[in-house]
Design a protein around this nucleic acid. Structure first.
Lengths: 154, 154
DNA sequence: ACTCCTTAGTTCGTGACACCAATTAAATTA
DNA sequence: TAATTTAATTGGTGTCACGAACTAAGGAGT
């Protein structure tokens, strides 16, 4: 029920109503999660599973480590990995040094699926930013990276 | 979900590795969702409930409309509103024009809770961006708003 | 009126996901 | 060896999301 804000200013930035930092980032996160969810769903995955596969692309952590990285409880990890393993996306390998722990690795099938999702996600996300200039997209990418890099000490 | 095209483009920032647009936004969304989840949890809410309250700040939609706005199924809405109503955060009011439909509105308690979360979230999110300059924060806010404004089906 | 169709919400069943508390088993420490 | 810590699992509970089937009310159309 709202008309579009009209103010057709000329310039690099359009007639954007600033939502504020919190609302802006919050709503952006919902937007992105929605896209990821849709992409994942198209391949029978959930967002969390997709994230799991993403994390495992360049890591082979133990359950514990993985849980910490994802900000989840260990018991949540068990279920998550269970379900992924049941679909052969992921594998548990007994650790050589510690007979209690497993190393979680992605399977070829998991990699393939992850790559497919990546392509789709790239397309979709790029679609979200279609109305931005290249410079703006680059700035956004850098700012996002800056936040992430600063807050994922790993 | 990790690319590694590095390329330090024109950013006055130092040691930031650019994750790329997709990974950057994806990981940022996880980061923000994590913060929101933590904030919500501190008040006994889930992210979705918090979002619900957020949406109802300036709207009083019907179930259907609400579902569409949140990208959820109607049946999901029933449960969501049920749980929120059980906690007196939200209320169903029969529509005057259509005896089938309800208008969902936030209660004073819901508003209060939402506002508390907002304050907390503001603090946390601002914490995430503590290492940015004011200008960068403003730019980020604007870019996020630009994406959201452009892609919110409203 | 009286069918036919659509729309608004709910209910039901299923499954994913998350947490906590308690448990098993291996490693560490004392 | 005994005590403690650590890695992971199990079991129980609750949220959340979906699809399919359902009720009830609105709107045609003839």
């Amino acid at each position: 029920m709202q008309n579009k804000p009209t103010a057709e200013t000329a310039g690099a930035d359009q007639d954007i109503e600033d939502l504020g930092l919190v609302d802006g980032l919050a709503q952006l996160s919902f937007l992105v999660q929605g896209v990821l969810g849709k992409v994942a769903a198209e391949h029978g995955l959930s967002v969390v599973q997709l994230r799991l596969l993403g994390v495992l692309r360049d890591r082979t952590p133990g359950m514990q480590e993985l849980a910490h990285h994802l900000g989840l409880d260990k018991s949540s990890m068990t279920g998550l990995v269970d379900r992924a393993e049941r679909r052969d996306l992921v594998r548990r390998t007994p650790s050589a040094h510690d007979r209690r722990s497993f190393l979680v690795s992605i399977t070829p099938q998991g990699q393939q699926l992850a790559r497919q999702c990546e392509v789709l996600a790239d397309r979709q996300i790029r679609g979200l930013t279609a109305h931005l200039t290249d410079a703006q997209r680059a700035r956004l990418s850098l700012l996002a990276s800056a936040l992430v890099n600063h807050h994922s000490p790993l």
